[in-house]
């Protein structure tokens, strides 16, 4: 058990309750139709389109979350432009942050 500011967290009760939930789900599942046959869903069925070869039907990484990137396009343009990959720019970032921090520390002292 781990104390948190507003309660506790323990993995064991969590696991036990998950197992109980799974058992209940399985029980409900056994109440279902007994004569159901599996296998039909996987085949192409009245689609009219030819079946794609396997390597084409795999969704590649750059297609995932396409909408997310489209929505945040402006942020991503800025963010990728920030990461120029030039070593001088890394030092410029360092220097400018150093200057800002020096100013902050100085200003805080004055106030």
């Amino acid at each position: 058990m781990m104390e948190t500011p507003s309660g506790f967290w323990g993995p064991v009760p969590w696991i036990i309750s998950t197992v109980v939930a799974v058992v209940i789900a399985c029980l409900i599942r056994t109440l279902g139709e007994k004569e159901h046959k599996s296998g039909v869903q996987g085949q192409e069925f009245l689609m009219g389109n030819p079946r794609l070869p396997e390597e084409k039907s795999h969704i590649r990484a750059h297609n995932i979350y396409w909408g997310f990137f489209q929505g945040l396009r402006r942020y991503y343009e800025h963010a990728t432009n920030m990461h120029t990959g030039i070593i001088n720019d890394y030092i410029i970032w360092f220097l400018s942050l150093l200057a800002i921090m020096l100013m902050i520390v100085f200003v805080v002292e004055v106030i």
Partner: peptide
Amino acid sequence: MRRVAAGISLTIVIAFL
């Protein structure tokens, strides 16, 4: 833009040094 920012921050850092 980048050069200006670098120049200003370099000046501040040198001033503090």
